[in-house]
């Protein structure tokens, strides 16, 4: 368990997720309106991801509702050479994570709630200022 205090900035939180979970390559924080907030990326185009993330989660939610399986937790797209995961951050934001083929999905699912909480707090303090 790391004893280092959570980083203060949004990008710091994203980078910290990359450090803590093996296989996380890049991530994008975006709004439900499809706008980019901040990104820790390398190859993906952050604005494009931001535009798609809200739609992805939206469809996921509707599917969960239609299938009657309770509230959506996250959307995990398992692909030929990696993963894309979209998870809600509060009511107004979304986190999209790109992982490679060896993504430690179990670790991600353990760590993402804390990350989401840190992001939510950091976003709230942004709004407060």
């Amino acid at each position: 368990m790391t004893e280092i205090p959570p980083p203060d900035s949004l990008t710091g939180i994203l980078a910290s997720l990359r450090e803590r979970v093996m296989g996380v390559s890049e991530s994008v924080l975006s709004t439900v309106d499809g706008l980019l907030v901040v990104a820790d990326t390398d190859t993906v185009h952050p604005e494009s991801v931001a535009a798609l993330a809200a739609a992805t989660l939206g469809v996921g939610r509707r599917m969960a509702e239609t299938a009657g399986v309770g509230a959506l937790r996250e959307v995990v797209a398992r692909c030929g050479s990696g993963h894309v995961i979209v998870v809600a951050v509060g009511d107004r934001a979304l986190l999209t994570v790109k992982g490679d083929d060896g993504l430690d999905l179990a670790a991600f699912q353990r760590e993402s709630p804390a990350t989401v909480e840190q992001l939510t707090k950091a976003l709230a303090s942004d709004v407060a200022h």
Binding site: G80, S81, D104
Partner: peptide
């Protein structure tokens, strides 16, 4: 199988 290194499958496909 471990997230720490590619499996044989991963190596073959990548």
């Amino acid at each position: 199988e471990t997230p720490g290194a590619p499996t044989a499958t991963s190596a073959l496909l990548t």
